[in-house]
Every structure is written in C-alpha cells, then in structure tokens.
Simulated assay, not measured.
Amino acid sequence: MTVLAHEADDEFLLRAEPHRRELLAHCYRMTGSLHDAEDLVQETYLRAWKAYSGFKGESSLRTWLYRIATNTCLTALEGRQRRPLPSGLGGPNADPTDDITFRDEVPWLEPLPDPAADPSEIVGSRESVRLAFVAALQHLSPRQRAVLVLREVLQWKAAEVAEVLGCSTAAVNSLLQRARAQLAAAGVREDDVLPAPDSPEAQELLDRYIAAFESYDIDKLVELFTADAVWEMPPFDSWYRGPHDIVLLSKTHCPAEGPGDLRFIRTTANGQPAAAVYLLNRETGRHEPLQLQVFDIGADGIRHVVAFHLPSFEKWGLPAVWEAPGA
C-alpha cells in the first residue's frame, strides 16, 4: 500500500510540475501579487495532490490544475482589497516638487519575474502579464477576472468556465462582457503591441536612459519619454505625467547626488524591459538595492515607468549589491 502511494505521488509530481510556471502566472494575474501567487500555487498543488487519486482524466491534467488554481484564487480573494498602482487610486497626477508620501499600508501591485531562460515562455502572450493589463484586472471583481483570464488568455470555452465557476454559460458571457467594457474604460487596448524586451529599439532607448541616470545627466531624459509618459513608484502614492514633470521629479526627489551614485542591471519583468537600480550607500561604499524599474516602451519612446521599491532582487537572480564588472 505504501509503495503504491509513493508511486502515485511520484506520478503526480512528474506530470504536474511542468505546469508550475504557467499556474504561477495565472495566480499572479488573478491576485496582482507575486508572493500571494506563490502561496496559491503551493495550495493548488497540495489540493491537487490530495485529490489526485480521484482524477479520472475526463479533462487534461493541465485543465484540471487550472480549475483548482482558479477556485483557490477566488477563495483567497474573498474580502481582499484590490492591488492598485498609484495611478489607479483615482487621484490626479501630482506636482513633482511636492512632498511624496510613503503608503506601506496599501497592498500595491507587485512585479512578476520572467522565466530565466526566455520571457516568451510565459503562457499566453507577453501582453497577458503586462503591468497595464494586470493593473486593469484589479478593477474587476474576482469572478470577472477569472472569466476574462480563462476566456481571453487561456481561450477556454464558455461552458468550461461555467463549470469552474458553478454558473450558467449566460452568466459567464455577461461577466465577460462587463469585464471587457471595464478594461476598455481603463484604456487597455487589445491591439496595443509593444516591442519585445530584447528588441533593438527597446535596448537603444534603455542604453540612453541608463547612461543619463548613471552619469547624473538628468536633463537628457526629456528626449526619451513620450509627451504623455507616466512615472509612478509604489509604495509612494503619487504619479506624474510628461517628460518635464518626470525630470523635475528626478531632480527633486532622486536620492542620488552625482555621477556614479546609481548603477543599473538590465533584466525583464512582466514580459517587459526592466532594470534593477542600485544606490550608493556612502557609509558602506556599496551600491545596494533601490528600485526595480519596469518600462513600457513604444515606437515613439518610453511611455510608462513603474519604479517598485524593493528590498532585494533575489527573485530576479540578481546580486545583493552591485559590483563593477571584473571586480
């Protein structure tokens, strides 16, 4: 009996483990939190492991795992606040010379590391984990999120979604219609295709952006942003629009004091170009984690920067302190 149980456990892990990454992306879309998504994936696997002996193969294992993950997320989201970005709080863009307010009591949207091997490994398109898309999902009810993700991202049939949610196909179609309308109102466009994170256009813009910050030549940033570019940096609750205000914000509030104070390491997050930013600690002489900046880059320039203040870049496999190449 014990041998058979071990064999069943081994079979479950062998078959289920390849789906872990895509389930993480699914739970992240639902919650907007990497940490919550990791916990919910673990809960999904625990529930699936306990129920595996009753899995009859009437659907694929992948579909079965998604059903469990979706319901696990819906249960976890009951009574929880949505996870916004500062621009999603409903307030106007701020004056860059005003004081900035740290709001750690707000459950902010979090960034998602991309697979180390290839960002394109994220299930669905890059657009399905873009910050703009995941932030817009936060305006939907949990059931609307589930319907939109299952129907639009995973391409499930309405009847399959209805079975997961325990409702009629008519209810699913109604939830989907309302979810689409709310996304459209939030400005999310399905045809808004961005350059790949490693495209020459994105890399050239990032070269110039990083050079401007590392050399402390902040005025050069003006020519890199689009006219209506947005900058925000949770857990500070303000957001800023336009190259002039973004540059003035950097001059007013950036903790760097001169060339070399900031150092950047390129990475990707949410299927978008990103950079880990390290700030010189003058007491230790080391460059320590400051922000993870995630970029929305269009054909006409940098359109959006979300600068997440993070205590470490461990989830991105990056060093605890920046060291000069060859050091």
Score class of each variant (00 low, 15 high):
303 R>T: 02
294 V>E: 08
295 F>T: 01
304 H>P: 00
280 L>R: 11
279 L>R: 09
300 D>I: 01
291 Q>F: 12
284 T>S: 15
298 G>F: 02
290 L>R: 14
279 L>C: 02
289 P>F: 08
282 R>L: 00
308 F>T: 04
282 R>P: 09
283 E>W: 12
303 R>Q: 05
294 V>K: 15
290 L>A: 04
283 E>D: 15
287 H>W: 13
296 D>M: 08
282 R>M: 05
299 A>C: 00
293 Q>F: 00
295 F>L: 01
278 Y>P: 12
289 P>K: 10
292 L>M: 13
295 F>D: 03
291 Q>H: 10
289 P>Y: 04
302 I>C: 09
283 E>H: 15
282 R>F: 07
304 H>F: 13
307 A>W: 04
284 T>N: 10
292 L>V: 06
284 T>P: 09
281 N>E: 05
310 L>E: 11
306 V>A: 12
279 L>I: 00
289 P>D: 12
280 L>C: 04
296 D>N: 10
279 L>V: 01
300 D>M: 07
301 G>M: 03
294 V>P: 14
299 A>R: 14
281 N>Y: 05
277 V>C: 15
295 F>Q: 06
299 A>L: 09
307 A>I: 06
304 H>V: 01
306 V>W: 12
291 Q>A: 14
298 G>A: 07
284 T>F: 02
303 R>W: 03
287 H>P: 00
287 H>G: 07
281 N>L: 07
309 H>M: 11
303 R>K: 07
277 V>G: 09
281 N>T: 01
288 E>C: 01
284 T>K: 02
279 L>P: 05
294 V>N: 15
285 G>H: 08
308 F>S: 06
281 N>R: 13
299 A>P: 00
277 V>M: 14
303 R>G: 00
279 L>W: 13
286 R>E: 15
303 R>F: 02
303 R>S: 05
308 F>I: 08
310 L>D: 05
293 Q>L: 07
285 G>K: 10
302 I>S: 03
301 G>D: 00
287 H>V: 03
286 R>C: 09
294 V>C: 06
288 E>P: 04
281 N>S: 07
301 G>W: 09
293 Q>H: 12
298 G>T: 08
280 L>N: 07
310 L>H: 14
299 A>D: 04
307 A>S: 15
306 V>G: 02
309 H>E: 13
290 L>Q: 12
297 I>A: 02
284 T>A: 06
298 G>Y: 05
303 R>M: 07
277 V>E: 05
295 F>K: 00
286 R>I: 00
